[in-house]
Nucleic acid binder design. Structure first.
Lengths: 219, 219
DNA sequence: GCATATTTGTCCGTATGTATA
DNA sequence: CTATACATACGGACAAATATG
């Protein structure tokens, strides 16, 4: 019954957090092999502990486990991107369509838009990408489902992994700052169904751009 | 390049599968503690291996990990059930509404309905529950998303865990055999949007029944 | 409130099997 | 085909946290 004591973060989770950061920041590249021996020494933890960390990240789709061969950084394929956008269209559009307008997550949407403008002014395109994901995470929160939030969190990390393979980040993220703002205005004005269908178009357009950039970057 | 060799299921995954079965079959009860020492001996595996298995199932929401105290079988709360049905309404209804009628998953839907009738005749209510879940898994498959399929697989296991806390399984599952059949007929007849809204009502009704049974079973 | 027993968290060493150069 | 490297899995150890009397 004592919740406060459960504040401790286990070693495994701390390491997982660290690796997750390295992944979405592009410090670890897709398809790269993560050796147990090397990483366990690098983090100063035992191989057993590291292996448990690997299981966590594998379940999240960030690492790929090949039996008897080891774990590798996931390589998002076109199929991955298509799948992710399919999920996003279903979940985000429904969340928006069914949301009530006084929902607390609305504040998160506004904050994310502000954040995006600030980053765009500084030409911080990675920051714009982050703000963009915050915005969409807030949309999902409208559905009030812990499980959908968790799913989106995973999906967002996977997408960022895919973005790491591309380099025209300005081209990918910057157009959507105004789009997000416009979407938010529509929603605030109570045009929910209109906003939902606008979001659907938006996601289709975004998917197309990401796929095109991806196709250009294939070696 | 040799796919066939990748067929091997690691020990960890085999044990996870086994425990998952025991969970959905009610052999392990909610809130029950799973001792590392006891279970590792029982399965004939080392503690380290078992711990990795625990991580997997914890990520799936079937087990709950309390730092320095151990792992316990998850206890689905009302909030859990509400959350799960919220997810189901969003995903299943959209999957059905957007599906094309020649989709291969349709075969799965038909098989599940047949399976349900057979089990109902034998008064095998647990089997009816399984067939029911197969039917809905097939609906999700209409969306063609690996990630949504994985999410639903988790959710279904969690829900079965909740069912394990109830005992009027006939009352819970048996009415929906005909409902599934009717839904399938509507979909086959091409009345997709009608079927989708029928499914929404269906899920709302189902949720209400599960919640009521749950409330009755509280001690 | 204390002392003890139990259990988890983490690490290490090692044997075996599998993949690859 | 052999050798090497590495993942898989085991069992033992010990400190730290927790439960028990």
């Amino acid at each position: 019954m004592n919740e406060p004591a459960a504040n401790t973060l286990t070693l495994i989770q701390k390491v997982a957090k660290e690796i997750r950061l390295q992944l979405v920041n592009g410090e670890l590249l897709p398809n790269q092999k993560l050796s147990e021996a090397t990483l366990s020494e690098q983090f100063g933890i035992s191989r057993n502990t590291l292996r448990e960390t690997f299981r966590l990240l594998t379940k999240e789709g960030l690492l790929k486990h090949e039996p008897n061969r080891g774990v590798f950084v996931s390589t998002p394929s076109m199929a991955t991107i298509i799948d992710i956008y399919r999920v996003r269209r279903i979940i985000e559009c429904q969340a928006l369509a069914q949301a009530y307008r006084m929902h607390p997550a609305l504040k998160g949407m506004h904050l994310a838009v502000e954040h995006a403008y600030i980053c765009r002014d500084k030409k911080d395109w990675l920051g714009v990408g982050t703000a963009n994901m915050e915005f969409h995470a807030a949309i999902v929160q409208l559905a009030d489902s812990e499980r959908l939030n968790a799913l989106f969190s995973n999906i967002a990390a996977e997408l960022r992994l895919a973005f790491g393979m591309l380099d025209d980040l300005e081209f990918l993220h910057s157009p959507f700052v105004d789009t997000n703002n416009h979407l938010l205005e529509m929603f605030d004005a109570g045009k929910t169904t209109e906003a939902a269908s606008y979001l659907e178009d938006y996601l289709i357009r975004s998917e197309r751009m990401v796929l095109a950039a991806y196709a250009r970057r294939i070696e």
